[in-house]
Design a protein around this nucleic acid. Structure first.
Lengths: 341, 341
DNA sequence: GTATTTTATGGTAGCGCTGTCATTATTCTT
DNA sequence: AAGAATAATGACAGCGCTACCATAAAATAC
């Protein structure tokens, strides 16, 4: 019976109708006050707000979403949370939407496009207002949904490719290339690469390729490379550099796919008494704070993660509609000369 | 007119009714298949799943939530994302729920209980299945909602207090106390504290108080303390230690509220040529990886952040109902002796 | 002073799904 | 073989809200 159902639910949860009754207005008027939409007389607004406060009314967003076929949720799907990089992006997003009605729903893919697809579909069930993901590479199914959905899409970090709507990030290929150019200019000639095995980390791969291109153009090539089977942690960087140098003691510079690993490299050198920069150059990527506070600041490339997140979210807030044209926002990067290469 | 409305929405979004029609079943049966609920004949399930696949049906969770007065959303409200600590917690939560239907919605409070309250209320509009927050201290309004809501509540990090339902964490007061005992045992006598000004960081405060208690019991007290106006970053730790030592050169050990600041302390000593441990002990909190990989591993306390997040989420998954009794899960902490104190 | 626009409010019909109660086939008891 | 329990499915109302249209009152136009 309907009454039973009501009894179960309504236990102390006031609805629009309750507010309307108390304020002596219709439901739709209360709804308009709540949503700040349409013309409302000041007196009416005051009365309604008083009733809302008195009852402690909390709007039911599920009902609202259902009725309007739209929600205030912003789907954020990131590859990882292990490293501060993506929390930084998330922080940027949060900063942009903190004063808006948007609420971020988070998914983590572990760099796996199939997991990304699964998470995306499960989140689309909420009719999100916008979707943010990392990178430009998704499964065909995911891409299809992203293109056909009634929501805006921002793809972060990477701009080397064809975005669905909006891409915000930097060219990782170029970053790798500039890294190579920079180090060649500094006089390094025997390049080593100490990477990781995250096969789906497209951006690390793009930087690697950019680096190789720069070397090639200068008639050089990687003398040695190794990849740590785990991930890209500091400890992995430390151990990997040790192994790399054991096999190739003649290297004069080693590039890491991120600052965490590069710092591990610094620690190995400190421990093994290797003169950083003079005897062996070390170069990272990301420009983490900690690398810059060290007595010998890490030479690296500053990626603007917070800015990427913030810019993307702001761009998504600009309009409710999908943009007619694709937009690519290049947040660029800075080479931090540092003291290690 | 209804037709117009339909036309706008239905643009390519199949509903349960569409699936039911195609499969030749009733809507409720399709719903049961989707939710894996109730007895369904194998043949029926197969037929329905085929229809779902054919149409690319995605259930509308807003409608489902409205009808059932329950959602699959898990509200996660954290103080900050700037430091890896809370992303670690979030990672633990995500690990626990990744194979379930739960989806985390994230809020960040900047350690402000009023912002926490605002975020909580806005999230309750989704009728979440569970709420996770940090700490045991909330505004009265927030506490009231947490106690009366139709969802389970987990309060993380801290267990010194009275939880709503479930608390998962450690005693920060005890951690501070043990820090003091440990350093006294090591022979340190002239204690300095290099903190920050996050007034709402209750846990740093509890550790500080525990430390003071330990000193007092040994007839000692803090010789000097300073607080950096910014936050608890590595650079702040480095600058603060320099200032602290300039004013109080006789200190023989300095405690920091977190590893980030303590590492800043290490860097200052390295730069200034101060013999760490012999001349000046340094002690942190958190047990971050990076501190342990340094040539001189940081002396600190390992807080089990990932475990806290994971345990809490698992506990919340155990039952759909609010627990009859309060539960406190102490994940404990480990003193890492390290090499800096 | 009437026509037109603007401002403020309400009635009503769903949105897409699930809870509740029935109903019919099937299997198990004794 | 009749009765009881179980398995499998369906009808239907309604969750709480908002889009859509309509209407009344006030302001403005000419």
């Amino acid at each position: 019976m309907a009454r039973k159902r009501n009894a179960n639910r309504n236990a102390g949860t006031p609805t629009l109708a309750d507010v309307a009754r108390l304020a002596g207005m219709s439901e739709i008027t209360v709804s308009r006050v709540v949503r700040n939409q349409g013309p409302i007389a000041d007196a009416t607004r005051t009365r309604v707000l008083a009733a809302i406060a008195q009852l402690g009314y909390i709007p039911n967003r599920a009902a609202g979403s259902l009725a309007s076929a739209a929600s205030t949720l912003m789907t954020v799907i990131l590859p990882s949370l292990s490293n501060i990089v993506f929390p930084d992006v998330l922080r940027g997003i949060h900063t942009a939407i903190t004063e808006t009605a948007f609420q971020p729903v988070i998914g983590v893919t572990d760099y796996d496009p199939l997991i990304e697809e699964r998470i995306l579909l499960s989140f689309l069930a909420w009719q999100p207002a916008a979707v943010i993901l990392a990178g430009l590479h998704h499964t065909p199914t995911a891409r299809k949904h992203l293109e056909q959905g009634r929501f805006r899409v921002a793809e972060l970090m990477d701009i080397d490719g064809d975005p669905v709507d909006i891409a915000v990030g930097m060219s990782h290929r170029q970053a790798g290339y500039e890294t190579g150019r920079h180090l060649i200019k500094r006089g390094y000639r025997k390049f080593g690469y100490a990477g990781h095995m995250l096969v789906h980390d497209d951006r690390a791969k793009a930087r690697y390729e950019g680096l190789c291109t720069a070397l090639q153009e200068a008639g050089l090539s990687l003398v040695a490379e190794m990849r740590s089977p785990g991930g890209g942690s500091t400890i992995a960087g430390r151990e990997l550099l040790e192994k790399l140098l054991a096999a190739h003691p003649d290297l004069d510079v080693v590039i890491f796919p991120n600052d965490d690993m590069a710092m591990g490299g610094i620690f190995h050198c400190m421990h093994a008494g290797i003169a950083i920069k003079e005897r062996l150059g070390l170069f990272g990527f990301n420009g983490l704070d900690i690398g810059q506070v060290m007595p010998l600041p890490l030479s690296t490339i500053l990626s603007k993660r917070f800015l990427i997140g913030k810019t993307a979210a702001e761009k998504l807030l600009e309009s409710r509609e999908r943009p007619a044209e694709k937009t690519i926002i290049n947040t660029g990067f800075d080479i931090i000369e540092g003291g290690t290469a």
